[in-house]
Design a protein around this nucleic acid. Structure first.
Lengths: 237, 237
DNA sequence: GTTTTTAAAAATCTCGAGAAAAAACGTTGA
DNA sequence: TCAACGTTTTTTCTCGAGATTTTTAAAAAC
């Protein structure tokens, strides 16, 4: 919703202002965990790190509140939004509900162009998966995975639903970074995506939403089962 | 979510900073329509109206992007978020889905304290309705109506669901102001609220959600049926 | 040894002024 | 009359410095 400055789809167009540049750099650092959950964000410090003035940085931080990646408190500055297992469970369940609903609408409304986009997005994702084998070039795969999910629900007419989902997806990405290193549940993500894509193309909404729901849930489960002491190293709230 | 500075529940605590003061004043003016939809928000102008510096006002505007009440565009400043019938339909449908789901969970999880809060909120709303007869003291009624809906779903454990709903409620309020002057569908809102409250207290989730869904939809219908030329006077997007 | 008080340090919040961009305007030419 | 162009005006964006507030740390009192 909102606009390119503050919403999730700000990855497409390039930044025109310093505020936006700082906004993106900060967002990336928070999602990737370079800025730890709960960490204090001191403007005087950060303005040097990101090469902008104090006011500019404050504005970028204000923008990040939209995404619930930053929280602020009265006269006590900004902090990186904390993380917790409960929060991720909430994110996951809410996302399952909304994304399944959106997918159902998208399958019902999608036209030929949508099918084409879906096929293309899946193809690009597959290529990225092949390229990624052995390497840890997460960046490109992550981006194409995002687009794949986005295209899946793109034929859903509700802009608000898609807006909320873009926020939740971004939130989930923070947690997904954790399951990178610690992945107890063996998954064939490619197979999941393929089945999902085929069910969507076949207009089998029940099957597609079932796969999608399970797909989203699995990431949560893989993190849920990590021993708590190992998790707390990462989830420093 | 976020915090008191930027989220919907910022009405409770009082503002500690000028940014927050300006944020609230601006939000109120946008919701009440004093700042027309689509209107350009010139910082140089507004900083005098709200009695703050340019940077402070910019930050307040950035905060309002969280609420999707303001949009910004590259190097071309801020604008009041536009309105449209399609948008309100989307808001309404999304809200019906989310709020009914939240109510169902709230009814399932709510304890005695929740019942008490609900009864109290309904009572305060009723009192405000009585007081309001003949006058147009919308302010107090509006606030208590908001709290009534908030308490209804307060026992729902999903913070994200409640966060999204607070945004949607705020958005809907913009449109509800229109149906004030032009109300073709005769409604007994008090009766709707009472039936809703009683169904919730009786833990009849099916009945309660049915009433709630209809309750939310009715406001949209009453605006939908207004002739388009009359509407366009208000909906200047 | 613990708590309270007091002072110094750091950080936040705020403003006004200067550079860069966009919009408005009048002029020129077909 | 209309369109294209260049100049002026407005507005946005950006920075650095000053005033409050919070935090930290040390000293004093119990």
């Amino acid at each position: 919703m909102a606009n390119k400055t503050a919403s999730g789809d700000s990855l497409t167009a390039e930044p025109k202002t310093l505020v936006e540049t700082a906004y993106r750099a900060l967002r990336r650092d928070i999602i990737e965990g370079n800025l730890a959950p709960g960490e204090k964000l001191r403007v005087e410090h950060l303005k040097d790190d990101y090469g902008v003035g104090a006011g500019t940085l404050r504005e970028a931080l204000s923008l990040l509140i939209s995404d619930a990646l930053v929280v602020s408190q009265g006269q006590r500055g900004f902090r990186v939004a904390p993380v917790s297992l409960e929060d991720f469970e909430d994110i996951t369940k809410t996302r399952v509900m909304l994304e399944c609903d959106a997918l159902r609408q998208s399958i019902a409304m999608g036209d030929d162009a949508w099918e084409g986009d879906l096929l293309a997005a899946f193809h690009r994702l597959t290529k990225a998966e092949e390229k990624r084998i052995g390497t840890d070039d997460r960046e490109e795969w992550e981006e194409r995975n995002r687009i794949f999910h986005e295209v899946l629900i793109s034929a859903c007419p509700s802009r608000w639903l898609k807006h909320f989902l873009s926020i939740l997806y971004q939130q989930a990405e923070r947690y997904r970074r954790l399951s990178l290193y610690l992945q107890p549940i063996p998954r064939d993500i490619h197979a999941e995506h393929e089945a999902l894509m085929q069910a969507a193309m076949a207009r089998d909404a029940d099957k597609a939403t079932a796969i999608l729901g399970e797909h989203i849930l699995l990431t949560f489960r893989s993190i849920e089962q990590i021993p708590k002491d190992q998790l707390n190293e990462k989830l420093v709230a």
